[in-house]
Design a protein around this nucleic acid. Structure first.
Lengths: 202, 202
DNA sequence: TGACAAACCACACAAATGTGTGGTATATCT
DNA sequence: AGATATACCACACATTTGTGTGGTTTGTCA
């Protein structure tokens, strides 16, 4: 039996909350009547009961007399469903088959601000053995240093930025490609940031 | 001198649009009267004139008779700077060195809605030669079919979902791993979606 | 001069939307 | 048995909100 970590919600309350999440994600929070319609409630009073319950459990906030003024307490970001094994030969990806959600913002940038993050488009195949291909976008967090084995964006003497693995050999750092065809780089360099995310579009 | 690429807006129209942007960003699009209050218009008619103008210029969409139903045409999303070669030995990533911006949402999901997208956490190394590693998150767009050489999420007979490359051999489709250690799959399967993005966090 | 667009206002009206009161039924807990 | 929580409905009413009509003023373009 799965445990509830968050405030306890009845299944119905959960459904109401999920509908609100969906609508908020799609840009416009629902009106009370829209919630009722969707979930099959014939009275606005019913929906208000649910909203009251969700408010008491601290999951939503509301403003009085304002239309659609339902706010989620949780982080506002859109979520992508994760599916796993699909049950019983029904390959239609219905709600029941969704195992959970990834928080897209989270997946993408984590809890970082934007200020110290930048992107680099990867050129070449020097990191191919680390699964980083030509054309990938590397998201880098600015940092003046990194640890052994981190993949870093480094500034070389010729003012080029390159993505390589940082290696510490007897106290001395050098850069290493993830491709046997490329020799390690022992020349002078400066770490400008650490790789935190790789994104590839097909 | 920078060129204007977007539709011409008067300064006032710009202010209205910016206020809408702000409110949308803060989660609740404004009502007509809220716009008027903020920008000092005493008549709802004035605001409607502005909204009409913004609609004609294709910047906002609206739904009739729905409160707060103002939608921005543009993508509401944050941007990440792309840097390339850094000039003149100044490794401080100042603005001057920024070559452009990636639209984060765009990078991530492109123009897709959320409904037809789901995520799959990659398990195993069967796609390693395609640069898809264990633990990567695969973003899949639901589709009942795909083209030769596309990487797809497929449902196998044992109700498992797998990520493989779709191959067409003489009119007959089968699945292929990107790892010589895994044999091709000729058994029955059903394409449930196509890989559009891979994300890896470090 | 006339046409037109941008920028406004006032106000009436109709929908949409939130609020509130007062029920019913069922199950659980004490 | 009584209290409490969940889970509903009906309906009246007050606000909020969108719509529509009909103005005025200012500047630009032809």
């Amino acid at each position: 039996m799965p445990m509830e970590e968050k405030p306890y919600l009845t299944p119905k309350q959960e459904r109401v909350l999920n509908f609100i999440r969906k609508r908020v994600g799609e840009r416009l929070p629902p009106t009370i009547r829209e919630i009722g319609e969707e979930l099959g409630f014939k009275s606005t009073g019913t929906v208000r009961d649910y909203l009251k319950a969700l408010m008491q459990k601290g999951l939503v906030r509301r403003m009085n007399n304002k239309s659609r003024a339902i706010e989620l307490t949780e982080r506002a970001s859109f979520k992508i469903p994760i599916i796993g094994t699909i049950m019983a030969g029904k390959p239609n990806l219905a709600y029941e088959e969704i195992q959970g959600y990834v928080d897209a913002d989270d997946l993408f940038l984590g809890r970082l601000g934007f200020d110290d993050v930048f992107a680099l488009r990867v050129k070449g195949d020097s990191m191919i053995d680390a699964g980083i291909l030509d054309g990938d976008v590397a998201i880098i967090k600015k940092r003046p240093n990194a640890d052994n084995n981190d993949i870093v964006a480094a500034l070389l003497d010729n003012n080029e930025v390159t993505l390589k693995r940082l290696r510490n050999r007897a106290g001395k750092f050098h850069l290493e490609a993830a491709n046997a065809n490329y020799p390690p780089i022992f020349e002078e360099f400066k770490v400008i940031g650490k790789l935190i995310t790789v994104i590839r579009k097909y």
